[in-house]
Amino acid sequence: MTNLHKDQQNNLVSFLRHNQPVPSNPRADLEQDLIDSLEPHPQHRRLSFKVIWTIPVTITLRVPVKLIATGFLVTSVSLGVKTPRTALEPKDLENFLVSNWYGTVDSDKYTANEKTEAYWLLPTASKSQPALSVLAH
């Protein structure tokens, strides 16, 4: 296979750009057809004002506070019980950091993640994060 010189490359590219194939015009009603057949975006459900205002003010104020407090207590207690705690020696931790720091400056790997389609789009469902705890003496 022959290598193209810079000049040849430039000539080829400018020739292609100048003579690039041009499509025929779209049919006249294409745009209107498209707009007409668009489905409305799904909206988040909102409670109507009637529903909101029929709930007594006392309940709307007191119940959430109690629920939040109870939820917080239950969550913190259950996490504390269920999450396995792993004790790490500071020396082990240091060794781990030293042996793994090379990967962190690999900029290609880091930026590649940003260029994937998943990065452009909002996540559809949130993933639960595993709990992690480290105890150092």
Binding site: L34, H41, W120, L121, L122
Partner: peptide, 18 residues
Amino acid sequence: LVQEVFFKVWKGLPKLKT
């Protein structure tokens, strides 16, 4: 094909971050 592209764009737009 053009129509299909723009349908997909319309559907996907709410998920586009920026």
